[in-house]
Design a protein around this nucleic acid. Structure first.
Length: 482
RNA sequence: GGCCCGUUCGUCUAUCGGUUAGGACACCAGGUUUUCAACCUGUAAAGAGGGGUUCGACUCCCCUACGGGCUGCCA
């Protein structure tokens, strides 16, 4: 019934993401947005945003702003203003009436109670529960003066073929579809109508969306056909599952993009991971957004649902953080601090952070870990050692620090010289450097985990380092006094 | 129930009829090492099951099993 037209013919590339504002921005929605963005931006096309808010009961402004924030965080910029589907309801109704005059739709006066009763009976008798409206072929002259919905007059036989660029040729027999409602009795459009009208009016050329819409595509294609509109290229991508292979839900932990932002994952790493989830370009695993834009294509999308793997996300994000330019990383970090309500950096800590970035970024997979690793430069004297690190301050260790500290006053303050000097100190006592590093780390950072002691001394500088070592000695002395 | 889609190491995936089925993450065993991270080396690990088609199937077809989606005056 529908010829295999080449829908990829010359036509400007326009994609869109059309989330419904009924909660947080789901990670799956974010990935769909990313695919659409990559496809359009990689081809000089446009990427649009439409808020599908026709369900007035469930749509909230808060959810809309969460969507905007999520897209912005991921760096997925859209063209023009976000379109409100609800605002276009009159246009949708206009098309519904156009379908009426064209004879491709009809008024149905069946009440919801009648339909529900029919479905219940059909289920009970194990018959098809497809509702066949008795008004489909009724003479308009006999129509009552009563509320009605407008239904699509869908073909009863034949088949509808979805030429899907991910799933392949999908054939659906028309007899398995009923006459869907396109305009509700209150005059508002249903999703099935609105999505087609909007995509057409917005000149969307490629519809890349979750494969939960694959079946819907057949019914939507009937609307395109009824209106004589050019079909978009269909690409129905598999959904994302939780680590256990079940549909991603709250019990898996993070489902909203803002939760990932709060956990400190860098946007570039998220883009990389999400792009690779369900799409591939040979064996390439780690890539920049520029590469993704150049490589992304519908042919690389897999047909099976993919599971979220936090370990891999961690790994990818860690590599992105390590590869980032220090200044850019600092900028991102400050944005993270602001977005999550953490205290901002002071001019002094900002400078220290920048100079320390080289020894911090290799050790962190998230900004949370980065901040944690930077603890030594964020705390002010006196550094209070935590329980685990305090145990390194044994009497012997304190003696060693006390001897060493004055000599640090005129030591050469470079990594190589400090390393030589401190190694000598430890060796002179017949100890491995580890025995000396532990108390040094405690005095400098107050933690058992930190960057290398040399790096901390370099970042802190001579005065601050010496002062911290003296503090540690003082504190121990005070503790040991009765 | 009906219809539609899917199924390669634990996970993400490569392969587009001919490979010892490759890579990455995770794991395990070593190495490096001042902690952590990183890094290096190595081990183990897969075509859901059954039928076809073919000289030859992970790859094409069918059936089954399992998973998912749709079946709303939700989107």
């Amino acid at each position: 019934m529908y010829p295999d037209v080449d829908t990829t013919r010359e036509r400007p590339v326009v994609t869109r993401i059309a989330p419904s504002p009924t909660g947080t921005m789901h990670i799956g929605t974010a990935r769909t947005a990313l695919f659409n963005w990559l496809y359009a931006r990689g081809r000089g096309g446009r990427f649009l945003l439409r808020i599908e808010d026709t369900d007035r009961a469930r749509s909230t402004p808060e959810a809309t702003s969460a969507i905007l924030r999520g897209l912005r965080w991921l760096g997925l910029d859209w063209d023009g203003d976000a379109v409100s589907q609800f605002d276009r309801r009159h246009r949708h109704a206009e098309v519904a009436h156009e379908m009426l005059t064209r004879g491709s739709a009809y008024k149905c006066f069946s009440t919801q109670e009648e339909i529900e009763a029919f479905r219940a009976a059909a289920e009970a008798e194990k018959r098809s529960s497809l509702f066949r409206s008795p008004w489909r072929d009724a003479d308009p002259a006999t129509h009552p003066d009563a509320p009605f919905v407008i239904r699509m007059r869908a073909p009863l036989d034949g088949q509808t073929i979805i030429n899907d660029h991910v799933q392949g040729r999908v054939t659906i027999r028309n007899e398995t579809l009923d006459d869907m409602v396109v305009l509700r009795s209150d005059g508002t459009p249903t999703y099935m109508l609105a999505v087609v009208v909007d995509d057409h009016d917005m000149e969307v050329s490629h519809v890349i969306r979750g494969d939960d819409h694959l079946n819907n595509a057949a019914r939507q294609q009937m609307v395109y056909d009824a209106m004589g509109w050019a079909l978009p290229v269909w690409a129905h991508i598999p959904l994302i599952f939780g680590p256990d292979g079940k549909k991603l839900s709250k019990r898996h932990g993070a489902t909203g993009v803002e939760e990932y932002q709060a956990m400190g994952y860098p946007a570039a790493g998220m883009r990389n991971y999400l792009t690779r989830l369900g799409w591939s370009h040979g064996d390439d695993e780690l890539f920049s957004t520029q590469k993704a834009l150049a490589w992304f294509d519908l042919s690389g999308i897999g047909r099976a649902p993919a599971r979220l793997d936090f370990k891999k996300l961690d790994s990818i994000c860690g590599r992105h953080i390590a590869a980032m330019d220090d200044a850019a990383l600092l900028h991102e970090l400050e944005a993270f601090l602001a977005a999550t309500g953490r205290p901002a950096l002071t001019p002094a800590t900002r400078e220290a952070m920048l100079s320390a970035m080289y020894c911090l970024k290799d050790r962190a997979k998230t900004y949370v870990e980065l901040i944690d690793m930077a603890h030594f430069l964020l705390v002010a004297r006196p550094v209070l050692p935590d329980g685990a690190s305090a145990s390194a301050l044994t009497p012997d260790a304190l003696t060693m620090l006390a001897e060493l500290t004055p000599r640090l006053q005129n030591a050469s303050w470079t990594k190589a010289d400090l390393e030589a000097f401190l190694t000598d100190v430890a060796t002179a006592r017949g100890l491995g450097f580890g025995k000396l590093a532990a108390p040094l780390r405690t005095a400098l950072a107050g933690r058992t985990v930190s960057p290398s002691v040399y790096d901390m001394m370099l970042v802190l500088g001579r005065d601050e380092s010496v002062a911290r070592l003296l503090d540690a000695g003082d504190a121990a002395r005070i503790r040991s006094e009765p």
